[in-house]
Design a protein around this nucleic acid. Sequence first.
DNA 1: CTAACATAGTGGACGTATCATCTATTCCGC
DNA 2: GCGGAATAGATGATACGTCCACTATGTTAG
Lengths: 157, 157
Amino acid sequence: MDDVRWLTDREERAWRSLQVMHMRLDGALARQLAADSGLSYPDYVVLVVLTDRPDGRMRLFELAAALGWEKSRLSHQVARMADRSLVKKEKCDSDRRGAYVVVTSRGRRAIEAAAPGHVATVRRLFVDRLTPSQLDAIADAAELVLAALDEPAPRPR
Amino acid sequence: MDDVRWLTDREERAWRSLQVMHMRLDGALARQLAADSGLSYPDYVVLVVLTDRPDGRMRLFELAAALGWEKSRLSHQVARMADRSLVKKEKCDSDRRGAYVVVTSRGRRAIEAAAPGHVATVRRLFVDRLTPSQLDAIADAAELVLAALDEPAPRPR
DNA sequence: CTAACATAGTGGACGTATCATCTATTCCGC
DNA sequence: GCGGAATAGATGATACGTCCACTATGTTAG
């Protein structure tokens, strides 16, 4: 097959620069979080979603859906976080297969300590570097790509 | 500290959508690669850079720089790839600390088999969903953020 | 009612990323 | 040259993600 449509320079530039940006940005954010608060990025996002609830409690499958994670990934992550007492698990009475994840006070303190520095870093490295219309352009583009991802994959070849 | 400048809705939308897009896009690309060719994404990028050289051979530190990876990461990755005979390592005569990574014919076959499908997927999910000016806008924004990442970090608080 | 199926969650295996540490070599200032 | 600093790379520990197989419970069609 030599009828491959390789990327043009313009396409290549967009694709590469986005990938490099993400690699470096994720790394910087993870390092800042770890240094300032001892949380990993996965810890952080789990705690963000959980502490958004008034009771700091969610079913695992609910949390997985909110994060867009697979259930196994969340199960492992919650197990690790429970080991460090950032969350705890509780049985569910109404559905005996189920379990709740609940933020502990230690988890709450950790996220409250971590959030300001994290947001400041997101601003310093990303948000504050871009104009409002650049931010909108990015969001629009990302949503188009997400729509593509929701289409069923084409029959292979 | 309650003088934190949290993200506005517009900022939040851009930041979130970009993150979600990346999570899902990376996953889709990794799954496509693995299914079609048995290569992981790290395997793929290593082979891309390596096969760009006429002799398919690079020093480890050179390859690490080209990829923007840390040396340790590359060392582990190359070791795994060597186990599967995608590359091999060779001693370096001119600098006896050093080593070359060399693509094997198996590695070459793997990347040649994988590339068309990978590029097609990048097109289907990303490049072909966006207009040229959207692609430029993304590249411009990414380069601004990369510039921010190259600035020295501010003194912590 | 019950058999088939779907859903909630767990757990192991494996590959991957980071960090810190270690060895061997080369470079460079004096 | 020589001794300290920098560089190339390997390695072990730990955390993270995915895949797959598995248990247990709930749901539904006939």
